[in-house]
Every structure is written in structure tokens, then in C-alpha cells.
């Protein structure tokens, strides 16, 4: 049996697992937004940044090594997570009070968890296009954090190619696979896994907004 030390706790893991896999299989949650068991790891949000051997690595992509020592719940890494969360908030347009994902949003939950009380950086207020063309699915790009979970779920689970990440740098944006660029003209279906993996309120099923009242949602 192989072991690693996470914040001083000895955890066992199987060959081929990442640090994140190891933590999860031992019932420990490392914060993260772009990781979902069952989808290939990406490592783009960096919220699962941990420290090992004096350097930062993303827990969801870094292979576990026998005997490695990993830090996660330290002041230093909490500060890294706090700043990353602030960056994600300021680069998009996140208005929690008017967002129907509020209370079920993993970004919001991560920010509560780290105790984030302000944006700290100046908001970018980007202009992003909303796509309400589809009768059952809404794409609100203001809230997209480019985690690519929808891209991967569509490819790896649904066997489609509905979403893609386009552009570069701060101009990065989510696009859909149709000549018109509209969701309506893609082969997406509301049952697709891709519709239900968004950690924020960028992809929403229409007509469900307040089925669960505020106050009784997952992270309330």
C-alpha cells in the first residue's frame, strides 16, 4: 500500500491516482472548481493548488508519489485560494443577489469557505454575450469561469462536441458548436450531462430557477 502525507495525515492511495483522487478516496475535500470525478482532470482553475517539495502543484493533475508530503490547509495556501477566487470574481460579472444559482454555486461556496469578504481587485466588467436562443437551456457567459467541465462532459460523457473554449488570455470565452454560434443550432439536449456540470450559473436549465427556494439550497 502506498502512502502520502496530506497536512500531516497519512493517507493511502492506489498507483495512478492524483493527490486529489487520494484525498477524495480518504473522505477529504480539497477545494476545486474545475474537477469532477469521472471527467479527465484539467488543472485550469488552480484552486486545488497544494504545496509539495517547495513548489505549487494542482492536486487534481499531480500524480501521488509514495511518501510525498503535501500541504493544503495552511495560511499561505488559503491566501493563494483567496486571491484566485477574487480573480475569478473580478474577471467576470458575478452578481450573486440576482443570480438564480445563488446558494447552489460552487464559486460562491468556495468564497464563503475561504472567508472572502471583498473583491480586492478592480472589477473588469467585461462585455459578454448571453445566449437565450435555446428553449430549455440558458447560456449566461457573464458567469463563465472557463473551467471547461461542460466541454469535457459533452465530449467524454455525452459523445458530442457542444462546447469549446476559444480566444486567448483575458479574451478567453466559451463558444458552442454551430455555424450560427447559437446554442439552439447545436445538438445539445437538456438531458446531456454537459448541461448539469456547470459549477456556476453560466449554464442553466430554464424554468427551474426557484424550484428550491433560497435558504434551502445546497450551500445555504
Amino acid at each position: 500500500m502506498k502512502n502520502l502525507l496530506l497536512d500531516g495525515k497519512m493517507l493511502t492511495y492506489e498507483e495512478g491516482q492524483t493527490i486529489m483522487d487520494c484525498a477524495l478516496s480518504n473522505g477529504i475535500a480539497i477545494p476545486g472548481l474545475c474537477h469532477l470525478p469521472g471527467l479527465s482532470p484539467s488543472g485550469n482553475c488552480r484552486l486545488c493548488t497544494v504545496k509539495t517539495g517547495g513548489r505549487y502543484v494542482s492536486a487534481c493533475t499531480e500524480p501521488a508519489i509514495d511518501g510525498m508530503e503535501v500541504e493544503c490547509e495552511t495560511m499561505e495556501l488559503s491566501q493563494v485560494r483567496m486571491q484566485l477566487l477574487r480573480m475569478l470574481f473580478v474577471e467576470g460579472n458575478h452578481y450573486c443577489p440576482s443570480c438564480e444559482k445563488s446558494g447552489s454555486c460552487r464559486l460562491q461556496e468556495a468564497a464563503y469557505h475561504e472567508g472572502m469578504l471583498d473583491l480586492h481587485f478592480r472589477p473588469f466588467y467585461p462585455k459578454r454575450e448571453m445566449d437565450a436562443s435555446h428553449p430549455e437551456i440558458l447560456l449566461d457567459r457573464d458567469r463563465c469561469i472557463f473551467c471547461a467541465l461542460c466541454v469535457r462532459a459533452s465530449r467524454e460523457i455525452d459523445g458530442k462536441n457542444v462546447f469549446d473554449i476559444s480566444g486567448r488570455g483575458i479574451e478567453t470565452h466559451l463558444i458552442v458548436n454551430s455555424a450560427s454560434g447559437k446554442l439552439l443550432d447545436t445538438d445539445i439536449s437538456v438531458e446531456d450531462r454537459a448541461v448539469h456540470v456547470c459549477p456556476v450559473g453560466a449554464i442553466l436549465v430554464k424554468g427551474k430557477g426557484f424550484e428550491i427556494p433560497i435558504g434551502r439550497r445546497l450551500y445555504d
Binding site: L84, M87, L88, E91, F121, F146, R168, G169, E171, T172
Partner: peptide
Amino acid sequence: FAHESCGFCTPCRVGTSI
């Protein structure tokens, strides 16, 4: 760097612009 960041990960995509 702000122009050439590929935009994949949060710290580089947003940090270089800040």
C-alpha cells in the same frame, strides 16, 4: 505577458492583466 497568456489557468489569465 497579458497579451501572450494562453488564458488556460486563472492566475496567469487574470494575474497578468492585473
